[in-house]
Design a protein around this nucleic acid. Sequence first.
DNA 1: TGTACATCAGTGAACGCGCGTTCACTGATGTAC
DNA 2: TGTACATCAGTGAACGCGCGTTCACTGATGTAC
Lengths: 190, 190
Amino acid sequence: MKKSKKEAAETRQRIVKTASAEFRRNGINGTGLSDLMAAAGLTHGGFYRHFDSKEQLVAESCAAAVDSLVESLTSALSRKTKRSGLEVVAASYLSKEARDDSSRCCPFVALGSELVRSDETTRSVATDGFLKLVDLLAAQFSRTRPDVAKARALIALSTMIGAATISRMVTDPELSATILRQTEKHLTEA
Amino acid sequence: MKKSKKEAAETRQRIVKTASAEFRRNGINGTGLSDLMAAAGLTHGGFYRHFDSKEQLVAESCAAAVDSLVESLTSALSRKTKRSGLEVVAASYLSKEARDDSSRCCPFVALGSELVRSDETTRSVATDGFLKLVDLLAAQFSRTRPDVAKARALIALSTMIGAATISRMVTDPELSATILRQTEKHLTEA
DNA sequence: TGTACATCAGTGAACGCGCGTTCACTGATGTAC
DNA sequence: TGTACATCAGTGAACGCGCGTTCACTGATGTAC
């Protein structure tokens, strides 16, 4: 049953990609390794050929989630429109579609309070990921002093992450929509 | 071993209060009923004399956490200072002390992404709690149209919740402090 | 007011279950000669 | 290039553990007469 090195590398990548979606969808605690491996088309026994522990996969899939978010934001930003960079990013964070598609959303929105309780390595990976997002957004504030741009980006991201989290938690659909709308308006008018 | 009605009611209250701290400290999934009951000075078997399920306790302790937060904010706001209401609230959300004391912090910061995955009842309780905080903060924006004050409060709370969550997640102490400081500055200068 | 009895808060053992992890095994892959 | 053998990706059963929940039991409380 042994697979070639190339196949094994593809399998590993598939597990990380699946995990990055499943963790965001069902939470870290809510995603068992058996279900996760099944979702990747494998049985659970093979997991430890690729990873030392579940926590290691959490860290890697958090990094993968950030990378795919950065990629999708970069691609949206490269489509030249009349909208500012911040408008594009805010629309991506604060649309109803993003709110309802947890498997593809920002990992800090989907997993925020779970990441806070993750181990040092995972939190360190999450920190790097957050800084990547800060840099990406700060770069959109052209003609602004770098330190000011970074502060603005940091605040805008915190605001979007908080608003997106609350908009998911709330049971009243109207309130949820209001949170998204008002926050987007606030960010793009300032 | 039966206790009087008064004692039983006190016990129930003690369990909710303990849970409200323990859930915030260790997360909902990270807090087992045995440990929780032990922390309240009881054995786990008695739990179901007071609650139908763990989830019911989650809902009640979320409400209790919001109530105690509202109380502590109200008390801080009533101490007349030169600071505006928003300044007082922001200081309370974004101080290092608040960041490091998870058992007493805002439940949306401590449990955000876990509450999103909780059941309808819990999320409904959380929604009511969020609206209480919105109203409390909106009331601080005097001489402002009520709908504008509510929008401002909603955005300020989202920002504080997002920033506080990220400041806890991040491994770099300097970055964590910067997030708190810049966000507080941003909120109180606007 | 006193007595007999039902109630029920709290105990601690036990339940089934799913979790993360381990392991013996299979058989295709990769390597040494 | 062909052959013998070591490697190891993936399988599926099994492990111990802690979880939420249930239950028989105890004995003080509360109630009916």
